[in-house]
């Protein structure tokens, strides 16, 4: 494992639950690994394969999508669609062994600041272990 490896992780967070959860983690001063950059979206259902694949192919070592728990969507059912879109993409990555573990979906509610920190840290750790994305250096994209 490359000790100096600092992964680049893109985190798509829904505005209502997960972003609020992240804020809570912040105000509780929970420590997180500095590898994740947050991209706020209004709802996790805004995140589709176009955004995720683009992130990967442009060199993201990991992509985390976080939204409200199923049933809690601020827009009632967005996250159900998000889940399906995610399941599809994950399956494609699995089918092709494209390191599906680099893609993660987590439900983080507004009260789950601690969970947010845990999810991010665990994911960052996992990605650090897996190492840099092969797409980072791929010249033939």
């Amino acid at each position: 494992m490359d000790k100096d490896f600092k992964p680049n992780i893109v985190g798509f967070l829904c505005n209502w639950c997960s972003y609020a959860g992240a804020d809570l983690a912040g105000s509780n001063k929970l420590e997180i690994k500095p590898f994740l950059s947050v991209v706020k979206v209004m709802c996790s259902s805004r995140v589709n394969s176009n955004l995720v694949l683009t992130s990967f192919l442009w060199g993201a070592d990991g992509v985390l999508i976080a939204g409200c728990h199923p049933g809690d969507c601020h827009y009632e059912k967005g996250n159900y669609y998000a889940r399906r879109r995610f399941a599809l993409l994950k399956k494609i990555m699995e089918s092709l062994n494209l390191e599906p573990q680099r893609l993660q979906l987590s439900w983080v509610s507004a009260s789950e600041g601690k969970r947010y920190a845990e999810v991010v840290n665990k994911f960052a750790e996992d990605i650090t272990k897996i190492g840099p994305s092969p797409f980072r250096k791929n010249q033939n994209l």
Partner: peptide
């Protein structure tokens, strides 16, 4: 619906 109360009310 076991919705997260904080998410709902905040």
């Amino acid at each position: 619906n076991m919705e997260c109360s904080t998410c709902m009310v905040s």
